[in-house]
Design a binder for these strands. Sequence first.
DNA 1: TAGAGGATTGAT
DNA 2: TCAATCCTCTAC
Length: 196
Amino acid sequence: MKIEQDYYRREVVQEVAKDLLGKVLYTRINNQVTAGVIVETEAYSWRERGCHAYNNLRTARTEVMFRTGGCAYVYLCYGIHNMFNVVTNIEGTAEAVLVRALEPIEGVQIMQRRTGAHSLPRITSGPGKLSKAMAIERNLNGAFLWGNEIWIEDSGTEIAKNAVRAVSRVGIDYAGEDATLPWRFIVADNPWISRS
DNA sequence: TAGAGGATTGAT
DNA sequence: TCAATCCTCTAC
């Protein structure tokens, strides 16, 4: 079952980030279907410095974050890596969840081919790598997550609450105190989460 | 319009 | 530890 829009429109972005663990991200690009269970996420909000839309900064890039929950926000990082985010909350409130790692369950060979010769446990263990494996590029920026190219499904299997860890986010030292917020959510001991 | 830097990654 | 690589944002 594809997840419906109300799921993404909730007010607390951290709740959506935590809840997305265990859900399944699908893409169908060039008629090739790939899918993976989300095992690591990070929450971002206009209220804190780690966010591109901090202090309601509205630019061509951040515009998508202000849209209604359920859109994809895809941007290029370091000129090399596409990063996939899920926009949350209602229109006008800039919040998003960065998907950082997946456990592949469908189209594994396709993902291996797209990422080169990486060994299996590592092909989707990081935001740049999973986008490459799933063929997520900036042409999907703004796409709704219940379409035919990219969507998220509820697998029906819950992640045990005691298996979820909330830790600090990575790579945002410039955010000062906000870099210490425990807004990164991982499935503990899962071999597919990104390196710390 | 130029210049600095980044929600990363893989090789050294 | 460092380079790759290009888009985005800011300052002039």
